[in-house]
Design a protein around this nucleic acid. Structure first.
Length: 109
DNA sequence: CCGATGACTTGAC
DNA sequence: GGTCAAGCCATCG
């Protein structure tokens, strides 16, 4: 596979796959790290094709820590279950203590 | 090539 | 401080 030829999407998958256990990040942070900056929507759109890949999409949330993409998952609470399994506190599809578990690729990488 | 879409972000009221 | 609207950029038809 040659990610560079595949496009921006694979780029997103690569970053998402590097998200540490028990941590989460935002679409904007990934977009900024990739140089897109304002293309946060493209990151989410890319995640739409993350199905079938080892991309922990459940670790990617919006800036508020809200599980916006949960609707695209199989179940309604599957995404929350996965996050809670990693020790992340999630209430009403919203991540608690976000600042503590937030993972910024631009800083960590 | 142009138009439409989208798991977002930020600014304004 | 919460809600509404517009913007932005890459992919697809």
């Amino acid at each position: 596979m040659q990610p560079e030829t595949l496009g921006f999407f694979e780029r997103v998958y690569g970053v998402a796959r590097q998200i540490p256990y028990g941590r989460v990040t935002s679409y904007g942070a990934i977009a900024k790290y990739l140089g897109a900056g304002k293309s946060a929507r493209i990151v989410g759109y890319a995640m739409n094709g993350s199905h079938g890949k080892d991309v922990p999409a459940h670790r990617v949330v919006n800036q508020k820590g809200l599980l916006t993409g949960k609707h695209h998952f199989e179940g309604t609470n599957l995404m929350q279950q996965l996050l809670e399994s990693e020790g992340i506190e999630v209430v009403d599809h919203q991540i608690q203590n976000l600042d503590a578990i937030f993972w910024d690729p631009a800083k960590e990488l």
